[in-house]
Design a binder for these strands. Sequence first.
DNA 1: TTTAGCATTTTGGCATTCCAAAACTCCAAT
DNA 2: ATTGGAGTTTTGGAATGCCAAAATGCTAAA
Lengths: 243, 243
Amino acid sequence: MSKKTDITDLDTGELALARPRATLVEVAADKLRELILLEKLPAGAHISERDLAAALGISRTPLTRALTILEQDGLIEYSVTRRPQVANPRLDEIEQNLIVMGALEALAGELACACITDAEIAQVAEYQRQIEAGDSTLSPLESFRLDMQMHEAIVQASRNAPLIDTHLKFNARLWRARFQSSQRRSGRGQTLAEHRAIVDALSRRDAKATSEALRHHLASAVTNTKNALQEDGKAKDHNTETE
Amino acid sequence: MSKKTDITDLDTGELALARPRATLVEVAADKLRELILLEKLPAGAHISERDLAAALGISRTPLTRALTILEQDGLIEYSVTRRPQVANPRLDEIEQNLIVMGALEALAGELACACITDAEIAQVAEYQRQIEAGDSTLSPLESFRLDMQMHEAIVQASRNAPLIDTHLKFNARLWRARFQSSQRRSGRGQTLAEHRAIVDALSRRDAKATSEALRHHLASAVTNTKNALQEDGKAKDHNTETE
DNA sequence: TTTAGCATTTTGGCATTCCAAAACTCCAAT
DNA sequence: ATTGGAGTTTTGGAATGCCAAAATGCTAAA
């Protein structure tokens, strides 16, 4: 209302959006998510609050709160003696998460069909096109990112905030496993065909078919992930258990 | 391992289970959930960390962490100026949550059919029997509790930890709305019929039918809740908005 | 009566500190 | 070589204090 407020907003920068200034907790939580995804903080790693706080240049107070958030997201777990460590889900846990994720995406697809715009459909189709076109040229990470973005776009189109939020959390939990799985490109052709089926059903705004296509797609994800991680598991074997 | 540990465990009490001693954060979080459900902390109420901490007999440090957890659960929201308040979801938000909950329970029913034991089925059926038998004698709260327990038993039977966990969170978020809805007993007969259909399908371990029955049951819950809360809303009108 | 603006109080964010418990180290006894 | 245990270090839990920002109360001008 006052002059002062307006001036400050302008000073803030280009966008001048009404952000209440990010807290260290949020910054730390975002940074931690990134560190975990990039495996700078590897799965199973024990975390020293003091060391990590120092590394982030903050005190333990906001870091502890950030860890509490990541614990709720399933990215951090506390041992019985209360020492935090990066979550290292077993294969069967990943599988269970994928099953829930399948139901969430199926619901998202169903809801999306009722309200998705042409522009949104075009965006999803564009992701699919890029994935298909770049199948042999894109890096594994780029392909994977496009895949994730496509799924996320569909979920966003559901316009259901709690669904979007819940899906986001499962996504974060499963990111590593799905990335690893995507790197060994077995069943690549099938994946692409499934993507096509999803876009096709969505384009027709066929709720039943979209839901079914997504459910089927996630079901294959369960199989693929299981295969990929089982092989990985054999390579390291006991290593994963002891950590 | 040492003598000392054993003695301490015995001193601890009857059960001597390996609990790492509850932290104030957990105690506070549980207490807060209870206060919110019982509306001792009414929806939309502003919370003063200092006052609440004093009321709970703890310092702000563990309380803040507890609030962070409840925020993740959707029971506490932070205003743009970072002041915590009890969440007060609008009708459309409740509706969206119920839709997701429907998908979760449908999935739970489907999974449960694959692994549910006879004892578990008997337990679910027993809940249903008590609800039906006590329809005119039980207090609204008792009826409601039985209803919740029945649903929870089915979800538990899915044996899917992330699903159980996610369902629990949605349940906490929706508790108040569903309780209010259950108190005006319109569509009571239909609800009982739907319960019967669920138990019936589950008894036959018919995954498809169980899933469908639960989905249908939650769809009526959306309608019932909408009707109930819309009437309530008219009574108070602007009151709910300003808060 | 309404409102603009200043002074005061209250609020949450964060750093710091202390403490008990857990983890670790190391050495002696077997 | 293994184990038991005492002593040391490290760890997270929790309380406290300070600060800037937000909320509130109050006064005076219109």
